[in-house]
């Protein structure tokens, strides 16, 4: 069967904390592929996507439910009214635009840019030109006109309000990739071939505070090696010797080894050792041990 690699999965998404709640907006949760909960980092293993979907539905669904059970809806209807009016006005504005850009052309171009310049192999020049052109497309998309003025069942209208949103995401992808001068997981820079734990062991966060801007605000969230159960090392596949080590990696590995050795000597089981290395919480009975054939709950 003829095959060639193509886009498949989005590890990135709505940044949440461990309970699945947005770090910035209370009462907003996210789970499944939409979220960056972040169990996949820079590459997801096959079989872990539907698994995450249902497992995060259980865990985040529980925290989400607890939030809904312990909070009231106390919002002024004028705020709701303003939110609807803003969207209604936006749709009217699109419908009333004079003849302008073709939204289908803009979308097609965006998808070509993403394939050609923000794909499997990435480099600074291509990424910069992708960011530049995507910004132009975003500006142009706001002048897209719609031939049919009907408000329902109008695919061109739907593209006219969706494509600018998609372009903002595309810019987040391309801009984030351009800033990240290392190769990690699925993000592969031909001009920065190594995984750079010393400088890039961090999550990219993007926000879009100014709705008229054409670039997001980028900040970073550090990932602390000293709290890891499994400090950074070679993955066991892919090219060897392609890591710029962080000084904490060896330090933490030594710590982990010592804790393991000490607790094993004390006769602790693997659950107690795990808990000593990196404690974590789960709701309901999800933290209970799983039973397996031949070994019981060991």
């Amino acid at each position: 069967m003829p095959v060639r690699p193509a886009q498949h999965y989005s590890m990135g998404g709505i940044r949440t904390n461990k309970t699945g709640e947005s770090q910035k907006l209370k009462g907003l949760f996210s789970c499944g592929e939409a979220a960056c909960w972040d169990m996949h980092g820079f590459n997801r293993l096959g079989g872990n996507s539907v698994s995450e979907a249902v497992v995060s539905g259980m865990i985040v669904g529980r925290y989400f439910t607890d939030y809904c059970l312990s909070h009231d809806t106390n919002i002024d209807t004028s705020i709701i009214h303003d939110a609807i009016t803003k969207q209604a006005d936006y749709i009217d504005e699109i419908l009333n635009r004079p003849e302008g850009e073709d939204i289908f052309e803009i979308k097609k171009r965006m998808q070509e840019i993403m394939d050609e310049k923000v794909g499997i192999f990435r480099n600074g020049d291509d990424l910069q030109s992708a960011v530049d052109e995507l910004q132009e497309l975003l500006t142009r998309s706001k002048k897209a006109s719609v031939k049919s003025k009907i408000k329902s069942g109008n695919p061109e209208l739907e593209e006219a309000y969706r494509v600018p949103k998609m372009l903002k995401l595309a810019i987040c992808v391309a801009h984030g990739a351009n800033q990240r001068t290392e190769s990690r997981g699925a993000h592969y820079r031909e001009d920065y071939l190594k995984r750079d734990d010393a400088n890039w062991l961090k999550r990219t966060l993007t926000a879009w505070p100014d709705e008229n801007a054409t670039l997001p605000e980028v900040s970073y969230e550090e990932i602390d090696i000293m709290t890891m159960e499994l400090p950074p090392a070679f993955r066991g596949y892919g090219a060897k010797g392609m890591t710029i080590e962080h000084e904490d990696s060896a330090k933490r590995q030594k710590e982990v080894d010592e804790i393991k050795k000490r607790l094993e000597k004390e006769g602790k089981d693997r659950f107690e050792i795990q808990d000593a290395l990196m404690p974590y919480d789960l709701p309901l009975n999800y933290k209970d041990k799983n039973e397996r054939i031949g070994v019981g709950h060991e």
């Binding site: 193509a6 940044r15 980092g41 995401l169 987040c172 966060l205 993007t206 926000a207 505070p209 997001p216």
Partner: peptide, 23 residues
């Protein structure tokens, strides 16, 4: 479109958007 609605709040953040998998 879900991520875009979150991004357009101007407040909430998206994480690691550049992490895209190719099958």
């Amino acid at each position: 479109t879900g991520q875009a609605a979150v991004l357009e709040t101007g407040v909430a953040t998206l994480g690691n958007m550049e992490a895209v998998q190719f099958h």
